[in-house]
Write a protein that binds this DNA or RNA. Structure first.
Lengths: 186, 186
DNA sequence: GACTCTATTGGACATACGCGCAATAAGAGT
DNA sequence: ACTCTTATTGCGCGTATGTCCAATAGAGTC
């Protein structure tokens, strides 16, 4: 999936060329371009989610798991991954199928963080009144900052954006500042 | 500016029709569609900024000014205003002029918040190590939450998103929870 | 081997878009 | 009146896109 042009500008012929088939075949399986984009987005985005999930599972302890979450987040191919999300959010209100897909995947990411926080509470290493709300806040902060990184390169330092988000999470769940291990620069 | 279709799908002919002129005239004043979109976006977005600025100026005390900021934010025409920002961010990396415009306007919003916090510090009502960073964090949180409100209606309650952001600001600048007055529901 | 159903092709069709252009209108200054 | 510059029009060209469709290939099934 080399959609460097962005979801919004991806055409049926692009997808066909990339799969080595014809444009007509795609409309044999998908009834509209909206669903083509939704399927393409789901595949790419849920791949990223899967990668992050397996990386987190290989950690023991919710604290390491959360650190691993951020490490995995910065590892995703920087341009295309987040640009794809920006396109999806912008098109969500115009393309129903794509909107439904992005909604589901956003919820999946939020639940991933929320349940890990809940584990931390069970372990006794974290404290949080509302893991659900905290997950939304932390992810929204990360999205809002990543959005600036992607749309306005150089405006905010990438490392600062990540550090701010991790600090916010530490504060929310009652961890000491720096308790989460920052990933190395890249 | 009735661009309900979104910046990305606005055509030269749309703009021409809305201004009651011909499409050729627009290319007489703008050298490319990128600059047309940048100008249209700048006009709409800086209008919103101006409205918020004047609303804040009519308040005395930085605390009231910050409350006014959030009140003004929720007042902006809900769909089209934020959808326009989403489109601009998504297109920023593909359309240089639009990207430069959105970057400048983002900075303007950030400075608006940062300088108000600095005023609060001078007044002695607030405390904050780095108003600049705090402004970026608060605005990014607000953007990330507003993004969900716009792209996935009903996922998060609008009032909660606003309340979370205002609480985050209160925490950052050492105000008591609830010190900022929440705007009435709408 | 004939038949049927699905997979797949390549292209046609209608539409839409950005951009440029030749032609015209409108002033403005002299 | 005349000229030069600017404003404005309407249209056409080239290109791209989503969608549809007739035709072909292939794979089972009896």
């Amino acid at each position: 999936m080399a959609s460097t042009k962005g979801l919004a500008n991806t055409t049926v012929r692009d997808v066909a060329a990339e799969m080595g088939t014809s444009s007509g075949l795609i409309h044999h399986y998908f009834s509209s371009m909206d669903e083509v984009l939704a399927a393409a987005f789901e595949q790419a985005a849920s791949d990223d989610l899967q990668t992050t999930e397996t990386a987190m599972e290989s950690c023991n302890g919710s604290l390491e798991r959360l650190s691993s979450f951020f490490a995995s987040y910065t590892r995703t191919d920087e341009y295309s991954a987040f640009q794809m999300w920006l396109d999806a959010w912008a098109e969500a209100s115009r393309r129903p199928a794509l909107g439904a897909t992005s909604r589901l995947l956003n919820i999946a990411w939020q639940r991933l963080v929320a349940t890990t926080i809940a584990e931390g509470i069970d372990e006794g290493t974290m404290s949080c009144d509302d893991p659900d709300a905290t997950a939304w806040r932390v992810l929204s902060l990360l999205d809002g900052l990543s959005l600036q990184l992607s749309a306005h390169p150089g405006l905010i330092e990438r490392r600062l954006a990540l550090d701010w988000t991790m600090t916010a999470l530490e504060t929310e769940v009652g961890l000491a500042p720096g308790a989460l291990t920052r990933p190395p620069n890249r």
